[in-house]
């Protein structure tokens, strides 16, 4: 039977996908560690040790990428968790409009990031944009959303949240709906109010949903490129450059070794932050 088993579930079925995955993803990933130590022109390479990495940490226009990538990931992830949870609670309550609300909030997840980025950069135009016009009606001063170096990165992060919150919300909805109703009944017998229901039942018991949202949006935030590129291309100056956009700029400039070093740094950051986070969150889930 064992031979039949092995033939029925032959690894040949895995082969085509595995070969593509190995050649196009795993091999370049491994090679990137080598090429990050070189000055490289695809045809030819020269070993230069740690120079690329040193450059990344010394050059202000490159170093800013670390800081921005982290800020961006933390802000988008935090807002998606908070808003996703609140919207999830709202959309699992007995509202007659909840199907409508779910669809509308979810739709931006499916549109092109570039389209969203372009449309919002028009709405954030400092003098003509409708956001500042609306603030003007309310008697508030407008902001140069994408031109002011202090707020530009946060403006992009807000648009990212606008586009991505629907995804967080649907994860929370499925998490909240999987809470057994017994808990609510027990709460009713004990006479707890809406706040208790939220804080003592929904928040702790939707923990698996929270973990998924944190992991996915944090990793997504660290890797983000499209929206930044569509809205500011890293500008003004280098103030909104994230690691992924720096990689693209170095690639365009022909600095392949440097671009690859940026890629390696991004792996290391993602691995160092995401894997322990993944372990930690999964452990807490078991403890519960």
């Amino acid at each position: 039977m064992n031979r039949v088993f092995r033939r029925t579930y032959s690894y040949w079925f895995l082969m085509p996908a595995a070969v593509i995955y190995f050649v196009i993803f795993l091999l370049p990933t491994v090679m990137s560690f080598f090429f990050s130590f070189t000055r490289w022109t695809l045809a030819d390479w020269e070993f230069i040790g740690l120079d690329n990495f040193v450059m990344f940490f010394q050059e202000q226009s490159l170093r800013i990428g670390f800081q921005n990538t982290l800020i961006y990931a933390v802000v988008t992830c935090g807002l998606k968790v908070i808003l996703g949870l609140l919207l999830g609670v709202l959309l699992t309550s007995r509202l007659r409009t909840r199907n409508y609300l779910r669809s509308v909030i979810f739709f931006p997840t499916l549109i092109s990031t570039i389209a969203v980025g372009i449309a919002f950069s028009m709405m954030m135009h400092p003098t003509q944009g409708i956001i500042n016009t609306a603030l003007g009606w309310a008697g508030l001063p407008g902001l140069d959303w994408l031109g002011d170096t202090r707020v530009a990165l946060l403006s992009i992060a807000l648009v990212d949240v606008w586009k991505g919150v629907g995804f967080a919300t649907v994860i929370y909805i499925s998490g909240i709906l999987s809470i057994p109703p017994d808990y609510y009944e027990a709460l009713q017998i004990d006479g707890g109010g809406a706040w208790h229901k939220f804080w003592n039942i929904i928040v702790p018991l939707s923990r698996p949903a929270t973990n998924s949202v944190i992991i996915l949006s944090f990793i997504g935030g660290l890797r983000s490129f499209d929206l930044v590129w569509a809205m500011t291309q890293g500008g003004p100056g280098f103030t909104t450059d994230v690691i992924a956009s720096i990689i693209y700029k170095q690639y365009q400039g022909g600095f392949y070794g440097l671009a690859t070093a940026g890629n390696v740094i991004l792996f290391v950051i993602v691995t160092v932050l995401a894997f322990p986070l993944y372990r930690y969150l999964n452990k807490r889930e078991v403890d519960l």
Binding site: I24, F25, L27, M31, F35, I247, A259, N263, F267, A274
Partner: peptide
């Protein structure tokens, strides 16, 4: 690993 790690761009170009 594939779910978490971003692809290595220029080495992929090199392979292709």
């Amino acid at each position: 690993v594939g779910l978490i790690i971003p692809p290595a761009i220029v080495p992929t170009i090199w392979v292709l």
